[in-house]
Amino acid sequence: MTKSWWKILATVLILYSIIGGLLINVPALPILHETIRNLYFHVPMWFSMLTLYLISVIYSVKYLNSGNPNHDLMAVESVNVGVIFCFLGLLTGMLWANITWGEPWPNDPKLNSSAISTLMYLAYLVLRNSIEEEQKRAKISAIYNIFAFPVMIVLLFILPRLTDSLHPGNGGNPGFGGYDLDDTMKLVLYPTFIGWILMAVWIMTLRYRIRIVEYKQEHHNQG
């Protein structure tokens, strides 16, 4: 119970974001209307994904340093759960875009580069499955992961900013952090980020622990 305080915190913060996100007043803006509340649910998906990918790349570096198979397992499971959050972010973004921009997938640099980065991480999972030998698989995929992370950052946060984009915060387009986001929104938004990131990490640790048990049993049976 003492160790799981952050899991309870995650639950409470997300619950707060659901209640506060739907009930607390938001600025009335044209086009957005009530959909501005999507900010509380769509953006945290991406932040959770980023956190998981960051954990993954840290553990890939650690694996290359130590050769400890547990570090490799942590890296994979982070990407596995990160991809789920990525798809949730894509789907919620498409629903939101359909209402505000008129179509679910306008040919926008932010959307297209997010699609490319998604494919990049799916390729990581495919790459892993294509290599039989355990250590080779761990090493090659760790190196791939270390290259994929900075490319993903460039695709998601640098390239869309250099061109025109519909997405807030890109291409001379002010983000919600500008005039749209008032202080009451921040009061909900920031706890939401923490809540969802903790939740994502929690799910990742569950998968990681299952993998550890499986790994131990496999090696026990062989030995």
């Binding site: 639950t11 619950l15 659901i18 209640i19 009930l23």
Partner: peptide
């Protein structure tokens, strides 16, 4: 809000 909260809890 209550329905979503119940599902989430």
């Amino acid at each position: 809000v209550v329905v979503i909260s119940v599902i989430f809890i």
